[in-house]
Design a protein around this nucleic acid. Structure first.
Lengths: 151, 151
DNA sequence: TCGTAATTGCAACTTAGTCGCATTTAGAAT
DNA sequence: ATTCTAAATGCGACTAAGTTGCAATTACGA
């Protein structure tokens, strides 16, 4: 992963994807930002945009049978660097991906793996103090327990 | 993973491993709790206990060349269920493991992957409100940024 | 010391994810 | 509109983390 590009894309991504969609100007915006929106990329983005919960690469692939596995993974990596989507770890066998719009976290049931989104977040990254780090601009926070179905 | 055993072991594990070590009574304690401390298990626990930072299964294996890979993984899973150690994800290629003593979190450099431990934590699990969950008793919280070496 | 259940070592396997390369496509130039 | 080129895709082979089945070994109570 190119870390420079990572920083740049993070800075550029001041509008969430939902705004991009509404603006109907995705290809132009992509172009202005120096990115290319191909058909596979648009299809993958649409799946994530329409999903109400985080999806694994495999789940995305199963909805887009014509798109190759390698393309799925490369595209997810691309969008993650771009900061358009988030790659999250919920202690499963693979990573999950979701649109990067409103900041939120998750509760995961240790038994059935059901995922609930929660808005709770009172963590201001910059307030964390560290001598070794020059900046901290990201965090992951996930909760684990048992859902009511699994008691 | 047997979730019943998970709950039981969590409840029993009221003393950290540091206390166990000091008490010099590990095998007896293990036995009383219904667990067996074999030589491979003790060796793996010792490596984790003496390490100042979280280790991957591969890193542990490299320090214990006689112990088989499968045993390493099975033992780490065993101790994790037992709640004697923690399995943590720092967005690398594999999981990290560390002793489950004082509750703390990590800062990870996105470039060089250096890990710093931080004590900062003001997250009371039970206060998180959810209609779908009956209890939430665990969370993971990791911070990401760039360390001073990587600017 | 013996017997049995649990643990280990080994090797084969699974699966998420990656990589190299030939083919195709997007978009700029003509 | 057509051509050109760099970038993206598809394909298949590969990697590496982690798992599994099973025979050999070990822990530990009787």
């Amino acid at each position: 992963m190119n870390t420079d590009e990572f920083e740049i894309s993070k800075k550029n991504n001041k509008f969430g994807y939902s705004s991009l969609i509404r603006m109907q100007g995705i290809p132009i915006l992509f172009k202005n930002l120096g990115y290319t929106l191909t058909k596979p990329r648009e299809a993958i983005l649409k799946v994530l945009y329409e999903s109400k919960k985080p999806l694994t690469a495999e789940q995305i692939k199963s909805k887009l049978s014509k798109i190759d596995k390698a393309t799925i993974y490369r595209t997810l990596e691309y969008f993650t660097e771009f900061r358009l989507i988030l790659k999250i770890d919920l202690r499963g066998d693979s990573f999950f991906y979701e649109m990067n719009d409103a900041h939120h976290h998750h509760i995961v049931c240790r038994k059935c793996r059901i995922i609930e989104e929660i808005e709770y977040c009172e963590l201001p990254n910059p307030m964390i103090y560290s001598k070794k780090f020059s900046f901290i601009n990201e965090h992951s926070l996930e909760f684990y327990g048992k859902c009511k179905n699994c008691v």
